[in-house]
Computed example of a mutant assay.
Amino acid sequence: MKVKLSSKTPKSFLTKTGGFLKDYDYSLNPYTGCAFGCSYCYVRRLPVSLFRKEEWGTWVDVKKAGRESFVRELKRAKSRGPVRIFMSSSTDPYQGEEAKEEVTRVLLSAMAEEKPDFLFVQTRSPLITRDIDMFQELKTRILVSMTIETDRDEVRKAFAPSSPPLAARLKALKQLSSAGIPTQAAVAPMLPFTDHFPEKLKQVTDIVTLDDFFQGDGAGGRRSASLGAHDILIQLKEEDWFDPERIEMERTRFERVFGKKNVRISQNGFAPFR
């Protein structure tokens, strides 16, 4: 799919948070829009998407970043209190354009100098391994969360055909973990997977977060249903996965592999380590 690109230079990058991200002080989005265009993405129902004429996934605004200006922004934020950052809440910081634009890398280089109290990096892109050197600068102040919703590629293609292949994500997560970066797999939203999925994830990380279409969509499943998630599951003959009780059954399965303390659920799974 052809993605329409545009550029802008924002006055600031850090945005105060609340709600689902109440455990953080700021969100950080290097881009507006996301070329992965996942069908279930809650951002499709937010103003940033609804006020655009183009379909979600067909446009990306590149936020031009200056390293020194972001260092100054971090210093100002730190003078006012804790700086715990969630990157990113409404885009993927490692979508394809990042390979050329390097907005995320510029922001990370600033954070390596003026370190935040904590940085949570959420992505589904193998490109993230490019920045292992930056993550190592932050040591224990970081958690990298790789979205791996399923181990069935036909399910991935049904929900997010433009997203990176599952095998590449698993390989990237293993590489991050092996480099000493704190990591987790985010099975979010939880899509139909095989019985061996927990064991596959345990080979590449020690922590997993589960979320579903009910706790995670902010509307008790109504938003996900309106985005067609239930319809896709029906087409896949997997409609029993659209069930608010399913996550507890799968939680037990993952706890047998990871242990109870290493299986986190929904909002708690995206909070800083305590």
Rank of each mutant, 00 (worst) to 15 (best):
A219Y: 11
H230T: 04
V83D: 05
P126K: 01
K202A: 15
E97A: 12
V187D: 04
E245L: 14
G259R: 07
R141W: 10
P47Q: 09
G218C: 09
T205S: 15
K53N: 08
D61S: 15
V43Y: 05
R84C: 09
D151C: 03
L176W: 05
L46G: 11
D92L: 02
T147Y: 11
M190T: 02
R264H: 11
L210G: 05
K63G: 04
V60L: 00
Q267R: 11
T129R: 09
A219P: 05
R246L: 12
V204W: 02
F20A: 13
L119H: 02
F254C: 03
S178Q: 14
T140F: 09
F20D: 08
L107R: 03
F120R: 12
F193R: 02
R264L: 15
L28N: 02
E250S: 09
R124F: 03
L233P: 05
L227F: 05
Y31S: 03
D92E: 04
V71W: 07
E239I: 04
P10M: 12
A229G: 04
T183I: 07
A225Y: 11
K260T: 10
S79R: 15
D240A: 14
A225C: 12
P164I: 00
A172N: 05
L166S: 03
G66E: 10
Y24M: 01
T123E: 10
E113G: 13
A160V: 05
F135E: 00
P189W: 00
A99L: 14
N268Q: 14
N262W: 07
P116N: 14
S12Y: 14
V257Q: 05
G18R: 15
T147S: 15
A172C: 13
K100C: 07
R253K: 15
R253F: 04
I232F: 07
I265P: 06
A167V: 08
S162M: 14
E250Q: 08
Q203I: 08
G220F: 06
L170I: 09
K2Q: 11
T123R: 06
E73Q: 09
T252C: 09
Q184F: 07
S88M: 06
P189Q: 02
V43G: 02
I181Y: 00
Q203Y: 05
P164G: 06
M111C: 08
Q215D: 13
I128Q: 06
S12G: 15
D117A: 11
L74G: 01
I142V: 15
T123V: 09
D212M: 03
R45D: 14
I148W: 01
D23L: 13
W56S: 03
V144W: 03
Y94C: 01
S27R: 08
F213M: 01
F270Y: 14
G37T: 00
R130F: 08
L236F: 06
L143T: 08
S163E: 06
L138A: 07
M1L: 13
R156S: 03
L107T: 03
M134T: 04
T209A: 15
D61G: 06
L14E: 10
W241F: 03
L108K: 03
L138S: 04
T129F: 04
E250N: 11
V263H: 05
R76C: 10
S49P: 02
C34I: 00
L233S: 01
Q175F: 04
M87W: 10
D231I: 06
K75V: 13
R84D: 07
K200N: 12
E255D: 09
L176E: 01
T91Q: 08
R105D: 06
A110R: 01
V48S: 08
S125A: 10
R44E: 00
N29Y: 10
E149R: 12
